[in-house]
Amino acid sequence: MRLSDLKINESGVVLKISSIGSLRRRLLDMGITNNTEIKIIKRAPLGDPIEIFLRGYELIVREEDAKLIEVKKI
């Protein structure tokens, strides 16, 4: 399951990050790594980007970037 497939208020645990290059490093720096718990807070009015909650703070990610993060729903 991908992070973008989670619905609002659902949470998941990161299994794998398949993005490469600067996006990958950025995601890691922001604290998205294996076993991180992520909750979907809301989507922007046009459905994209997505507001997520992890490690005690809120972050905005685009749908296409969220597709590259594999999660397990909890």
């Binding site: 996006l23 950025r26 995601l27 922001m30 972050l59 905005i60 685009r62 970037d65």
Partner: peptide, 8 residues
Amino acid sequence: PMPFLLEL
């Protein structure tokens, strides 16, 4: 477009 990651 580049990835967009912004802390809220």
